[in-house]
Amino acid sequence: MKGFFLGLLAAAILAPVTLATSGCSTTRYHERAKLADHCMQLDADPALVFIRTKTEGAREAAFGGYGRSPAGGCGCE
């Protein structure tokens, strides 16, 4: 089990670091209008994050599952 966790961590950290630090410049400044729009936000609204994390996250094996930062369980997020 420990080997599984370590392998998963190493792969998940090294892959994006390698890609990101290789300089993935993909847009010019004047091309970022759509990227800056509200519709491109990963979390649509902070109040929605608050209530969904509190009510749904606490019920999925006691914490998380959204790819966000939970407080660590106990339904106290």
């Binding site: 966790f5 998963l8 961590l9 998940a12 950290i13 994006p16 670091v17 890609l19 990101a20 993935c24 993909t26 847009t27 091309e31 970022r32 209008a33 759509k34 990227l35 491109m40 990963l42 914490f63 998380g64 790819g67 930062s69 939970p70 660590g72 369980g73």
Partner: peptide, 22 residues
């Protein structure tokens, strides 16, 4: 650890890996 990347003027991706210990 999180990484967000603009793939094009219309497309972005975000990935993260998280370790939690209680």
């Amino acid at each position: 650890f999180g990484w967000t990347q603009h793939l094009s003027p219309s497309w972005l991706v975000g990935t993260s890996v998280q370790y939690t210990r209680q």
